[in-house]
Write a protein that binds this DNA or RNA. Structure first.
Length: 343
DNA sequence: TATTCGATAAACAGAT
DNA sequence: CATCTGTTTATCGAAT
């Protein structure tokens, strides 16, 4: 099944069923980060003067990813690794277009001009909203921004009846995973509030995404838009068998998420250097644009995880998860502190 | 078979 | 006034 190569704490959202790797197994109290990190991170920690900027695509720009200057508020998330796209020395990634197979026009494409109808994405609305918000520079979006992100990244919704927008709003209101944030009236542009992901539900949302991805993959690039489109084109049921992952309710007993300030900033992780994370076909999906496919880096409780792709495949089936111990955290700039240190 | 969950529709109120 | 946003309720189908 899934290839995890380390030992996660009992409360890990990605606790592996088995196959703990001794080489990557970590105890928070046993510093040995170099070996752990070097297992998947070729280079070792170096200059603290280099920092990784956690940034992402401005939701309204519709343009390329991760090109906007980083601000403090841009860097508040541990899961978005869009900064990877900013650093040519880290990844052989270039800023990727959001949609490589569809014209990025503002005008909707008439259905009759499309060679086929895009297949409905397998993701639940919660996942779509999650991706949209996480792909925003400040990890918060207005409803309209969520709409636009979904339409931009999933052509299905470009043509779908408008009811899905109602579903988005319904999901935002109903789901505990999302928080409504009142806008600063002095700077408010547009109606409504901003929405963000409740930090405590982020691991679960990530897990849902990961499982959804895994369950629907037929190749290593399941989520690539071309695959989605080709599947629809060929009438293949590449994404047909939906498997709903509903583990969010397992968190329903958790204390209500707090409105702690976003984590942010610059994280010294010069050591992170990845190669071979992208195949020759660099067409990306929205998850990949946000770093979900290539790599996750997030905090859960007192632990932090660095989820790396496997040797060559860029899919979540073959990721490796590294639990960063205290020393690694220090080398990485103490992300615990950045995360608020409330765990 | 009952329950759960997600999707969908609809109604409504408030804000812009 | 129209539109958008947010909430709530209800229903349905699929999965468990």
């Amino acid at each position: 099944m899934e290839k995890y190569t380390q030992a996660l704490p009992p409360h890990s959202p990605l606790h592996p069923p088995q196959n703990n790797s001794e080489a990557l197994s970590r105890s928070p109290s046993l510093p040995q980060p170099a070996a752990a990190l070097s297992a998947s991170l070729p280079s070792s920690p170096t200059s603290p003067s280099s920092y990784l900027h956690f940034t992402s695509t401005p939701w309204a720009s519709g343009g390329s990813h991760c090109l906007s200057p980083s601000t403090v508020s841009d860097q508040d998330d541990l899961t978005c690794l869009s900064w990877l796209h900013q650093r040519g020395n880290l990844l052989p990634l270039q800023p990727l277009p959001k949609i490589t197979t569809l014209p990025q026009t503002l005008d909707p494409i008439p259905v009759q001009q499309l060679p086929f109808s895009p297949a409905k994405p397998p993701y639940s609305f919660s996942s779509l909203i999650f991706m949209a918000i996480e792909d925003s520079p400040e990890k918060r979006l207005p409803v309209k921004g969520i709409y636009e992100w979904i339409v931009e990244n999933f052509p299905y919704y470009r043509e779908a009846p408008g009811g899905w927008r109602n579903s988005v709003r319904h999901n935002l209101s109903l789901s505990k995973s999302f928080q409504r944030i009142h806008r600063d009236k002095s700077q408010s542009v547009g109606k409504g509030s901003l929405w963000r992901v409740c930090p405590e539900y982020r691991p679960a949302l990530l897990e849902v995404l990961r499982k959804t991805h895994y369950c629907h993959r037929t190749n290593s690039n399941l989520l690539n838009k071309p695959v989605l489109l080709e599947a629809a084109d060929n009438g293949q049921n590449t994404l047909g068998e939906t498997m709903e992952i509903s583990d969010l309710d397992s968190l329903s007993s958790n204390p209500p998420c707090s409105l702690t300030p976003d984590h942010e900033e610059l994280v010294p992780m010069e050591s992170v250097e990845l190669t071979e994370v992208v195949g020759e076909d660099s067409e990306k999906d929205p998850l990949a644009d946000s770093g979900y496919i290539e790599l996750h880096y997030y905090q859960y409780q007192q632990y932090q995880y660095l989820v790396l792709p496997g040797d060559t495949e860029l899919d979540l089936e073959s990721v490796e998860i590294l639990q960063l111990d205290a020393e690694a955290q220090e080398a990485a700039g103490s992300l615990l502190d950045l995360a608020g240190g409330n765990h």
